[in-house]
Nucleic acid binder design. Structure first.
Lengths: 182, 182
DNA sequence: TCCAAGCGTTGAAAATATTGCACACTCTGG
DNA sequence: CCAGAGTGTGCAATATTTTCAACGCTTGGA
């Protein structure tokens, strides 16, 4: 996706006209028109000015450029997942049929008091997760974090890590780890 | 951190001279000099050419951490995620600081009527997800599935795919894709 | 020592981006 | 039906960036 089309998409998403955005950004409407039609390649400074009127940073702007990825047995019903629970922590592996898998995608439930254990996990690859219910305590290396609903994490699997639920509400976590180590 | 200084830092990190980079990029050494001294604000097209000589994408360039401790960030508060939404679909990238990431881990919200688009996505790697709220319609290849709350999916990214919310309730999806292509 | 090859910088010319203004078009209200 | 305010586009003038061709500097080898 080119710069012009991307700018136009974002501008329309925000419900702004070329002139309105131009006024906010402190440039002329012609500039916006030219950029959107890709008849010029704006300078960083002017693109930055334009984006300030949205407002949006250069990083955010260029981060949108990926060809978005959405998208065997493909779909699994909630009760159909492979249970790989250890101890009191319930872990459901999404996509049980995929053996040479690239991602270990888990739906984990931590009842009050649950703990992944004293010895911390170490593995290759990277790990990400988001907490969608309750609260959890995450330890990575020597740091301990409190995760609240909606919070997420991303770290290198070579760092030892551990999850614990010292609270009195169950917690639900969606996590992805790569490469799959099952 | 300004564009010029950032470019210079990256160039030196790669052990390239202005002239060497200029040659690879297909611009003149003066251009590099001017940009690095911030005596001009390069056009997107020329910055893109310059970065191609490194090689590096515009997104990577602007996403580069300036604060070292960003590398160490493990936990992200809910509002702190990088928004990479396209169209009406809200997508939050978990772990914004990780550039050479192995997983694209996203928290996505599909309002009623939202759609990833007519042309279906295709990419390398694999993709997994779990629906934690609402209902969604998933199309993979020629098959269309109805996802309900708690349902999940796992498939190869080489199959064209698309997500749609034809229902009147918003849907929230947690997804992981590998390799990360942004 | 001197030369050749590398480095980054700089001024004037060429190329490109931005402005200022006008145009054609689509609405909406009178 | 027209007037007025909105939209995006296009063109000549202006401002900025990029190139070309130097310059002075440092380094390493003959």
């Amino acid at each position: 996706m080119d710069v012009g089309t991307r700018l136009q998409t974002i501008r329309r998403l925000k419900g702004l006209s070329q002139r309105e955005l131009a006024k906010r950004a402190g440039v002329t409407n012609s500039t916006i028109s030219m950029i959107e039609k890709n008849s010029v390649s704006p300078s960083i400074s002017s693109l930055k000015k334009v984006l300030a009127g949205i407002p949006m940073s250069l990083m955010e702007f260029f981060s949108m450029d990926m060809e978005q990825d959405r998208h065997a047995q493909v779909v699994y019903k909630a009760g159909e997942l492979l249970d790989i629970s250890t101890g009191s922590v319930s872990m459901k592996l999404i996509g049980k049929a995929h053996t040479g898998r690239a991602i270990a995608f888990l739906d984990e439930t931590y009842p009050p008091g649950a703990d992944t254990g004293e010895e911390m996990f170490v593995h290759d690859g990277e790990e990400a997760g988001v907490l969608i219910e309750g609260r959890l305590e995450l330890t990575v290396g020597s740091q301990t974090y409190l995760l609240e609903c909606g919070d997420s994490y991303y770290f290198d699997g070579s760092q030892p890590h551990r999850l614990r639920n010292p609270f009195d509400q169950p917690a639900r976590l969606i996590s992805a780890t790569t490469p799959a180590n099952f």
